[in-house]
Amino acid sequence: MNSMSHKKAEKISMYFKFFILLIFGSLLMAPFVWMVSVGFDRTANITMPFPPRLIPEEPSGFNYGIVFENGRLIQSYINSAIVTISSVLIGVSSSLLAGYAFSKGRFKGKKAMFIIVLCTLMIPMEPRLIPLYKLFNSVDMLNTFWPLILPPIINGMLIFLCKQFFDQLPDTLREAAQIDGAGEFKIFFRVYFPLSGPIAATMVILAFIWSWNDFLWPLVVLNNQELHTVPLYLASFSLENGTSLGGLTMALATVSILPIIVLYLFLQRYIIQSIALSGVKGE
């Protein structure tokens, strides 16, 4: 009897927890739902629908049509893609090489050099902003993508994660290849690089998120509107229009967020794992 009621209580508490999670989850989702809904409302550009409603009185694709017709969002998508893909490639390759060297290498100054890498984690962007601006100005690279692509070549967090990964791989693999007379580069590319899939995927995901959402530095170096990345375009649109043009703003936000959300839903397991890894290992 006792165990029966105990089980019942457990079940009730389980449903209760589930219910709370559902409520809070819908609160977090509400801005997204509202965003999509207002985006379909043509009249929202003059007065926002109030009280809020899930389905607009007269649903129309007008706002979404304008977003695509205008073309600036698509242009900024292309810009963001160029910047992100290049900087991810550069950052992940250099970090793989460095992480591997710090894990398997035997050379003078290894410890000191690794400490230098960890120290870079302590240096935020702000104190480097003006000197970097002047540096890229002096080589005439402002209003190009280079200032966004080149600096991510150094990423202490990626090197750290990569070193940790290679630390778990046995040294015996190296020794076997060494006996065959393979050089260090050959050993890396033939033996360890093919095994680095899981950590490389994590590094790509993290570097992608950082580069795609980067805002302050692009804002400083890109004045030319045609070069604006997605966040820059959104910010300039938002600052220009404030809280007028609600329908258009929401349509723009929807189109800018949606591809990332779709990508996230497909890769959610890996993305969440990567975030957790950067937090757990960084701890």
């Binding site: 977090l28 109030f50 795609w212 959104l234 993305i271």
Partner: peptide
């Protein structure tokens, strides 16, 4: 997946939405 979704959204886009979400009248 649901709870992590806001964090995936860029903070710039999120701010843009919140300017309306937090509008005093509408």
């Amino acid at each position: 997946v649901i709870y992590f979704l806001p964090n995936v959204t860029s903070i710039v886009a999120a701010s843009m939405i919140f300017a309306f979400v937090l509008h005093p009248e509408m």
